[in-house]
Amino acid sequence: MELFDLWAGQYQLDSQIFGAITLANQRLSEAAAVMDEATESQVPGGVDGAVVRWRDEPGVAGFWGFGLWLPKRGGPPQPTAFVDQALAPVEGRPVATDEETVSRMRALGMTFDPMSIGLWMVGRGSPTPQHCAPGQTVTVPGRSATLGCRVTLSNGRVAISTAGHGARTTNLIADVAGTRIGRVAHSVCPQTQTPGTPCADIALIALDRNHQEGAHRAFQAYQATSAGDDLLVNVPAGTQQAWARAVLPTLWLNRTCGAWANVIETDHHVSVQGDSGSTVEVGTTVGHPTGHVVAGDAVRTVIQDLDYQLGWFNAAIRP
């Protein structure tokens, strides 16, 4: 499910706003590729030259991504540029009041008028991948992440999900608390993608045939996250409650790798270092998985859509 499309339909978003946000994210993808290809001795002229000036700033030229943000729960969404926290306050302000940001957007090839679509900018820290510590986690050599939901692979093998950035290499043995459970069958994450490439962040561990699974949450059908939905975030410390405050078609980690596609952010942070791969459910009762934790910072937890993630490898939820 493309969550940005869902939210846009939910609020009957004006086509001009929809087009502007789509264009802005496309331009960031192009800028990341330009920055990667240009060297200090080969700085291009024109627009590309302007882009390369900001190659060392957070995200892509100081931007994490463009999307929709709810200033108040239940209120209309605000078209928003998510920028480095040095450029704007957490609760935001109109982009039109900041000449530097407007000029930077123009240099990046964002040809729309920020004032005409009511674009805001909100400050965010780096969306740090939430790596895990051993003991509560699935571990592969050198990395670890929280176990997610039970799935069936396209070849019929039973498997379990986790964060792609915690299990980046396929065929490695995965264990929990020192006991082997299987091997990494599939993995994808922004850190393994070329600059300018949005992607999923998920790994699927094919369980050994003699592995006995323990107790698990009884998941039902996937349900997409709509604006303002209640969320249950199942981190190792216990289930946390939050609500869906923003949606971003693309969220950039930095210019040197890929980006998370199809993500939402919560109204406050409910994850800590160690929670990537945790399952997230829609509503106030268990049973409807919607995504996995992939990142977070001091003010938000970042969740990627489950349907989008599983679609990368044609996997399916199993009860």
Rank of each mutant, 00 (worst) to 15 (best):
T266N: 11
G75F: 09
P44V: 00
D5I: 02
P94T: 03
V138Q: 11
A218H: 05
S278Q: 07
G142E: 06
T162G: 13
R73D: 00
C199F: 12
A244L: 09
W54S: 02
T194F: 04
E213V: 08
G19V: 02
V302P: 11
E99F: 14
P289Q: 04
A86K: 15
G123Y: 08
A224Y: 06
D267A: 09
Y222S: 04
C199Q: 08
V151R: 03
V34H: 05
H165D: 01
W260V: 02
T197W: 03
Q240F: 04
T290A: 13
H165V: 02
L147A: 03
G148A: 06
D113W: 08
G156P: 04
A8H: 02
G238R: 15
Q212K: 10
W120E: 06
G258H: 07
G67K: 12
V158M: 11
V184W: 12
I317N: 13
G258T: 01
G296C: 08
C257P: 00
A8P: 02
F66D: 06
T137S: 11
D208N: 08
G178V: 02
G142W: 12
A215M: 06
G19S: 08
I205N: 12
E37H: 04
Q10I: 00
A261W: 00
E265K: 15
G274I: 10
V286Q: 14
P190Q: 08
P190C: 06
Q10P: 01
P249C: 01
A177S: 10
A61K: 04
R104S: 08
L6V: 01
S161P: 12
A133W: 14
G135F: 12
Q220H: 07
E100G: 04
V43K: 03
Q136Y: 13
D175L: 03
D48L: 01
W120S: 03
T170V: 05
G166Q: 01
V293K: 12
G125K: 07
A316Q: 10
L232Y: 15
P94W: 11
P79T: 01
R255H: 05
D56E: 07
W54Y: 13
L70E: 13
D56K: 05
S278P: 06
I173C: 10
M105G: 09
S116K: 09
C189Y: 10
V302S: 12
V272R: 15
G92R: 12
N314F: 15
W69K: 01
R93I: 02
A50Q: 14
R300M: 15
H186D: 08
P89S: 01
A163H: 02
G67S: 03
Q42G: 02
